[in-house]
Structures are given as C-alpha cells and as structure tokens.
Simulated assay, not measured.
Amino acid sequence: MLNNRIIPTLLLHEGGLVKTRKFKNPKYVGDPINAIRIFNDKEVDELILLDIDASREGRGPNLEALAEIAGECFMPLCYGGGIRTLEMAARIFDCGVEKVCLQSSAIDDPGLITQIASRFGSQAVVLSVDVKRDWLRTAKLYQSRSGKTAPMAWTEFMRIGVAAGAGEVMLNAVDRDGEQSGYDIELIRQATALIEVPLIAAGGAGKLTDFKAAIDAGASACAAGAMFVFYGPHRAVLITYPHYADLEQIVGVKQ
C-alpha cells in the first residue's frame, strides 16, 4: 500500500463526466461507469465523485445513478453534491458510498457535519474547501454553488468544519483546476499548519513530481482530475492512472 493516496476526482455534469478549467467550461470526457471500470482495472485506492450541478440547482443527488456507480466501484468512493440533510447522507451511504464530501451545506450549517460524523464517524465526512486568489493573490473562500467568493476566511471555514467533526479536508485551488501547472504549495503549507486531520491536495496536478511536492508540503493525499483524463498538449481524452511502480518511487510504500 502506498504511503499517500493518489485519488482520481471525477465530475458529474448532466449525467456524464466532465473536466473543468478553473471551475468553468466543462468538457465531456465520458461515461461514469466506463471510467469506473478503467480505474478498477488500474487498482486505484480511492475515488472522489462530485456532482457539480446538484447544489447550484438546489437538488439532491441522483441516487439511482449513484447506486449503479457505487456498485461498479471496487475501491472506496467519496461522493459530494446536493447533500443537505442527515437523511440524505444516510441514503447515500446506503448506496454503497464510504464518504460524503460537504461544502455548500457546511457553509450554511456546520452542524450538519456534526450530525453525520456523530452517526457515521468523522472518517466518513470530508470537508471541501475551495480557495480562489484575487488579483492581489489574496486567498479567498470560494462558493462553487454561487461561483463567487464568500466573506468568511477560508481558514476560518476550515477550522469550523474540522471542529464540527470533519475527519478530512479537501483543499482545492480554483485557479489551478484543470491547468496541470502544479499544486498551490503555499496554500497546502498554510492549511496543514492549522489542522490536525488529513488534507487532500487538489487542483493543479500535471506530473508525478507534483504529488511529491504537495506531500512534502504536508498533504496526506493528492487528488487529480485532468491528469487522469487528458493526454498530450491537445488534451485528448484518455482515462488512465500511473503505474503502481511509478507511484511507489514518488510516495513510497507502507512497510
């Protein structure tokens, strides 16, 4: 087993999989079930699936589709999008999902984190913290639901979410999403200095050494999207995953 998880992140949009750039301009990359089967064959350790429409449209997840996806998934699955109540989280876990990822609902009511963590355990709750830099490069909390920055500091939102019971934080650099230019190392260092729970770095992975840089900065795991669904300078769609031996060289293995 690898020392650090390297996690593909898949985005659901209008029933298909897409990849965004800076949270905009979703490009279709394929069918969810086909992608899941490819990652099964690659023996991926964990998978994150985010419905990028649900919260913005004010609806819950498509439970029928989610159950089908989870049924095909041989690795632990984390799902986010449209989770607003404890009951909805319970139905998602009943579909075979191991973790839920919260953002919009956690901004509205951090108590939901506590409710879910109390019933299913902190390890089942991932807090999604999206951060966008302004023209002065000041890091601001970004609300994917509204497409705008929030008045609350991202560090405060992260602190509140962890205190409420989130067992893990996914820190996503909006400006680097889909750019494959490397993670925001400064953000990762700042975040890991403030929390004691594991942190998943997201936004910017383009090569294997980007994973090492994020882990060296304090990340416990690395998530990536574009790196696993595009190939070459023209971003041709090709769903893939690094060879295990190559990842061993980067992150090492547990003894």
Rank of each mutant, 00 (worst) to 15 (best):
N3G: 11
N4F: 07
I7N: 07
P8E: 09
T9S: 14
T9V: 15
L11Q: 11
L12N: 09
L12H: 12
H13T: 04
E14H: 05
E14W: 00
G15W: 04
G16S: 13
L17W: 09
F23I: 05
F23H: 12
K24I: 02
P26Y: 05
P26R: 12
K27N: 14
V29P: 12
G30L: 04
D31W: 03
N34T: 15
N34A: 15
A35C: 14
I36G: 11
R37G: 11
I38C: 12
N40L: 14
K42C: 15
K42Q: 10
K42L: 12
K42Y: 05
E43M: 14
D45Q: 09
L47H: 03
I52E: 05
I52W: 01
I52T: 04
R56H: 00
R56A: 04
P61W: 02
N62K: 05
I69Q: 13
I69G: 14
I69N: 13
G71I: 09
C73A: 06
C73M: 01
M75Q: 07
P76M: 07
Y79F: 06
Y79R: 12
T85H: 02
T85R: 07
R91D: 08
I92C: 14
D94W: 08
G96I: 10
V97W: 04
K99F: 01
C101S: 14
C101D: 05
S104T: 12
S105L: 10
A106H: 02
D108E: 15
D109Q: 03
G111R: 02
L112P: 08
T114K: 08
I116P: 10
S118G: 12
R119F: 04
A124I: 05
L127W: 01
L127A: 10
S128F: 02
V129T: 12
D130C: 07
R133I: 08
D134E: 02
L136N: 10
R137T: 13
R137W: 05
R137M: 15
T138I: 12
L141M: 04
Y142R: 15
Q143F: 01
Q143M: 06
Q143E: 11
R145H: 03
S146D: 07
S146A: 04
T149A: 10
A150D: 15
M152F: 02
A153D: 14
W154K: 11
T155N: 09
R159I: 09
A166Y: 03
A166L: 10
E168D: 03
M170H: 03
M170P: 00
L171W: 02
R176T: 11
G178V: 10
E179V: 15
Q180M: 15
S181I: 14
Y183M: 10
D184I: 07
D184A: 12
L187K: 02
R189K: 06
A191K: 03
E196P: 00
E196F: 13
I200W: 02
A202G: 01
G204V: 15
L208V: 07
L208N: 07
L208F: 00
F211R: 03
K212A: 09
A213F: 01
A214S: 13
G218R: 05
A219D: 00
G225P: 05
M227D: 00
V229W: 08
F230Y: 10
G232F: 02
H234G: 00
R235C: 13
V237A: 14
L238T: 12
L238F: 07
P242K: 06
A245L: 07
D246T: 00
L247V: 07
G252C: 06
G252M: 05
Q255W: 01
